[in-house]
Design a protein around this nucleic acid. Structure first.
Length: 271
DNA sequence: GATGCAATAT
DNA sequence: AATATTGCAT
């Protein structure tokens, strides 16, 4: 995958939610992420605006439950007439609902309350859908609310942020794309520390004193299986497979490096 | 079916 | 070299 250093400032996002508080919060967070934001409190109006002003939006975030029109209906309409990535959003995370969103063509499903980290990388949906994204098109840094009145002008230095048509993803962006596609887990020293702690915690309970160091190590860690380690670590998004993979990679150095009677915790610093 | 684990792939 | 995925045994 190609890589670039910059963030796509000015991506045009439409947010649809009947709850004004949600709208405001979303708008704030999206601004912080350097997106341009249009908020809309009712789905029919959003749909009208999207249709009237085609090519002025890049991405839609829509609530699921709305009085005038079901979020899925809006999703469907957009899918039929417009070629825009749509992210569904709801406090309800039932699998059936999420499934419905995905099968109806949503590119993502955000669970309320939405955290800002989940918004930082939504631009990647645009890239993925269109293959490429031109960041040099019109540069009005203006936000609109559903009444098409000017509500806010962003005074960021957009001018200095030029780029070519081809998007490239920086490692940092890929790393915390937690709600997006597969990001490789990076075992930072922080994360590894937690991993080691979990392994130790599991080991401590079951340790049997043994005259043989090798035996004691084996005994010490028989409970430290991927699933238990994962559960103790409590890292969102970290799967059993991730832990298994790391355990496999680590176990070699564990057995090789451990000097006699050294506790695993001592390895924390050496990583 | 869920899990652990070694081998293998990327 | 690091992490993911696969395949097989339990």
């Amino acid at each position: 995958m190609a890589v670039s250093e910059d963030f796509p400032v000015g991506l045009r996002v439409m947010v649809v939610d009947d709850d004004p508080v949600c709208l405001l919060i979303l708008q704030r967070m999206l601004h912080q992420c350097r997106y341009r934001v249009t908020t809309c409190s009712c789905a029919t109006q959003a749909y009208t605006m999207l249709r009237e002003r085609q090519d002025t939006f890049d991405l839609v975030i829509s609530d699921v439950y709305m009085p005038d029109m079901d979020g899925f209906r809006l999703l469907e309409l957009i899918g039929l007439e417009l070629d825009l990535p749509v992210i569904m959003m709801s406090a309800n995370g039932e699998t059936s609902l999420v499934m419905k969103g995905i099968t109806h063509g949503a590119c993502d499903y955000l669970l309320k309350p939405v955290r800002i980290e989940e918004l930082r990388n939504i631009w990647q949906h645009v890239v993925r859908k269109k293959g490429t994204f031109d960041f040099n098109r019109d540069n009005c840094s203006i936000d609109w609310d559903s009444n098409k009145t000017l509500v806010e002008v962003q005074s960021e230095d957009h001018g200095s942020r030029k780029r070519k048509g081809n998007i490239e993803l920086s490692d940092a962006m890929i790393e915390d794309a937690n709600s997006l596609k597969k990001a490789r887990v990076v075992w930072s020293s922080e994360l590894h520390k937690k991993f080691v702690n979990a392994v130790n915690q599991l080991g401590i309970d079951t340790v049997e004193p043994s005259p043989c160091l090798f035996d004691s190590i084996i005994c010490l860690f028989t409970e430290a299986v991927p699933k238990s380690i994962m559960e103790i670590m409590r890292i969102q998004g970290l799967t059993r497979e991730n832990v298994a993979s790391h355990l496999q990679a680590s176990s070699i150095s564990f057995l090789m490096i451990l000097p006699p009677f050294q506790n695993l915790a001592d390895l924390q610093s050496s990583h």
